[in-house]
Design a protein around this nucleic acid. Structure first.
Length: 358
DNA sequence: CACACGTGGGC
DNA sequence: TGCCCAAGTGT
């Protein structure tokens, strides 16, 4: 049966399956548009299992848009620590502030207005509109493209931005007007649990509508071009204490990688010189009693840090580079830090690494 | 359009 | 081990 010849049958099968088999997730117990919004932002490029505890803590800390609007950025970033893509948190707060200030605290209910909010792109706009408000709008993510590329045997490269329009048009043609929320979530749930990269077709509720399954080509879809690997950058991290035992850190720049997070003095090792020499040349920081802490790789999407970390003390006690400050251990704990810095910090504090665990 | 932007899990 | 992946957005 071709899906376009029996859209009603497809909708019915998908919706029935979703309503009976859907996972019980925290954000599925609410229709509060703010909570849906938070969940959708957290779920961007991030797994459900990872998001759940972050979502619970975030909603407990910021139960209303007003609370989030008032939050301090360091505290907000601390709530996001470890989740990655930290600009999502700042954009979310900016968007929420906008709603509080300019929309009387009501999330806009049309695509044009909601899409003006920071961090709300085509997907998040459609997800909030359909899930929170029951408005029939497309919400096309990676799951939806995978599912529909198989069902309709669409062979366009899904890594090319304009390809997404094809799927948005398909969704608007197929979407259930009575329950757009379950329809959109059903497509995503199917992609997340059954129509996975290695699909479990025998469990699929809409197998009879799937052209790729018909032809045994489900594993060939969706078509996506390779991404190239990132560069490898050797870096040295120095945890430096003063005579009072306080730690030297700085806030990273407000734009770019790990924006506004806090870190120990860190230098790229571009020459053959020692980490200690490089530290002095780049930051003017003279240290003494240098000892190794740990070495590891930290892999970002687009680059890899080869980290060597050291413990040291200030040599002359005075010169602190621009932007750096000393913090007590308690203060260091409270600062939002990227994972590689947390790793070093945990090791300093008697922590273990994987090599120790076993 | 192409790339920057995190992190952890799966195989 | 290295590579791919996961409910995208901003520039």
């Amino acid at each position: 049966m071709h899906i376009l010849e029996n859209k009603e049958g497809f909708r019915h099968s998908l919706l029935h399956w979703y309503r009976t088999e859907k996972r019980d997730l925290p954000w599925r117990r609410t229709s509060n548009p703010y909570y849906i919004w938070v969940s959708e932002v957290m779920l961007q490029q991030t797994r459900v299992d990872t998001v759940i505890p972050y979502y619970e803590r975030f909603i407990a800390k910021y139960p209303t848009m007003e609370k989030l609007a008032e939050a301090e950025e360091n505290e907000l970033l601390k709530m996001w620590e470890g989740l990655g893509y930290y600009s999502r948190a700042r954009n979310l707060q900016a968007g929420v502030r906008e709603v509080v200030a300019n929309y009387e605290g009501n999330v806009p209910t049309n695509r044009k207005e909601i899409s003006t909010l920071k961090g709300v792109g085509p997907y998040t706009a459609g997800a909030v509109l359909s899930i929170a408000f029951g408005i029939p709008e497309h919400a096309v993510d990676g799951n939806v493209m995978r599912v529909l590329s198989r069902i309709l045997l669409i062979e366009e490269d899904i890594t090319i931005p304009r390809t997404k329009r094809i799927f948005e048009d398909v969704v608007m043609d197929l979407i259930d007007k009575q329950d757009p929320s379950s329809f959109n979530q059903g497509l995503m749930e199917l992609g997340a649990t059954i129509c996975t990269p290695k699909p479990k077709c025998l469990l699929c509720p809409v197998r009879e509508y799937c052209q790729a399954y018909d032809e045994g080509r489900q594993e060939e879809l969706p078509v996506r071009t390779r991404k190239k690997r990132g560069k490898v950058i050797p870096v040295a991290i120095f945890s430096v204490q003063n005579e009072q035992g306080e730690w030297l850190l700085r806030q990273r720049p407000e734009n770019g990688l790990l924006a506004n997070l806090w870190e120990f003095p860190m230098v790229e090792l571009t020459t053959n010189e020692s980490a200690e020499e490089t530290l002095f040349k780049q930051l003017g920081l003279k240290v003494d009693a240098v000892s190794d802490i740990m070495s590891f790789k930290h892999i970002f999407t687009h680059l890899t840090w080869e980290v060597k970390s050291y413990c040291a003390v200030l040599k002359n006690g005075k010169r602190v580079p621009d932007g750096y400050k000393f913090f007590t251990a308690t203060e260091v704990e409270e600062l939002p830090k990227p994972v590689p810095v947390v790793k070093v910090w945990d090791m300093i504090n008697g922590g273990e690494n994987e090599n120790d665990k076993k």
